[in-house]
Amino acid sequence: MTNSLHAVFHAIANIRNEQELRLTLMDKISEHFGVQNSGIYLLDEHLTAEIDVPGIPAVCLENNPVGRYVVERHAPAHEQLLLSPADWKHFCSRHDHEHVMTGPIVCDGRLIGTLNLARDKGNPAFNGNDLADLSALCIHLSAKMATLRTKPKIFDSLLANPLTVRELEIAELVAQGLTNAEIGEKLWITQNSVKQALKRMFRKLKVSARAEMVAKLQDIEAS
């Protein structure tokens, strides 16, 4: 377990930009914690200036006790730290989120994202060792994000692109043909959040359809 955690630390150290976070880390993180579902949720830049606790999607439901704990304390938590198994089921009945654990990604004293882990039904609950490992991992992630966000933007394609990192992730999944529901599940946000994001993206790009949006982004990347 220690070796695999060090592998994740090493991978974080070599990340060059925010887009690489999921591509580089998620397989290693899932392997270390033995989870079937995992995700990194980064708040859009326009949301970080004023954080409203109920508005932050975390784990599987908005405004759930695990997410609220992480937002209020900037500390990791799992559902059994806060609730009995029966009480947890009042908030989440999904069999693939039988056990959940969430940790904070913090920059300049502000919560800028969360690292979310979930185990399917029939798998063991998260324990104190898992929580300690997640805490260490979030410290490394937070330090890396602080470094990335103080660097100047050097990629012309990013300068020319009006979308945020989060919106670019949604656009990539749209290009893969995923529905709003499927995108929400992959990014650990609600279907309505995806829908609202797409409306913003259409306005920014001055398009009216998903295919038109993907084509325009491809043109921007090629220019």
Rank of each mutant, 00 (worst) to 15 (best):
L83S: 07
L83R: 12
P85A: 08
A86Y: 00
D87R: 06
W88K: 00
H90A: 01
H90E: 00
F91V: 14
C92S: 10
R94F: 05
R94L: 11
H95I: 14
D96E: 15
H97C: 08
H97W: 02
M101N: 09
T102V: 15
G103C: 04
G103I: 08
V106L: 13
V106G: 04
C107Q: 15
D108A: 15
D108T: 03
G113F: 02
G113L: 00
T114H: 10
A118M: 07
R119L: 00
R119K: 15
P124Q: 06
A125I: 03
F126S: 09
N127K: 03
N127L: 13
N127R: 05
G128R: 11
D130C: 08
L131C: 03
A132E: 02
D133Q: 12
D133T: 00
S135Q: 15
A136C: 02
C138A: 13
C138F: 04
I139K: 12
I139M: 03
H140Q: 00
H140F: 05
L141Y: 03
L141Q: 09
L141P: 01
S142V: 10
S142H: 14
A143T: 10
A143P: 07
A143N: 03
A143I: 07
A143S: 11
M145I: 11
T147P: 06
L148C: 08
R149F: 09
K151T: 01
I154C: 06
I154P: 02
S157M: 05
S157Y: 15
S157G: 06
L159G: 12
L159K: 14
N161F: 08
P162W: 04
L163F: 10
E167H: 07
E167F: 00
E167S: 02
L168V: 13
L168F: 03
I170Y: 12
A171H: 14
A171S: 15
E172N: 02
L173W: 00
V174E: 05
T179K: 11
N180M: 09
A181M: 08
I183P: 10
K186L: 11
N192I: 11
K199W: 10
M201I: 15
F202T: 12
R203S: 11
R203N: 05
R203A: 14
R203P: 08
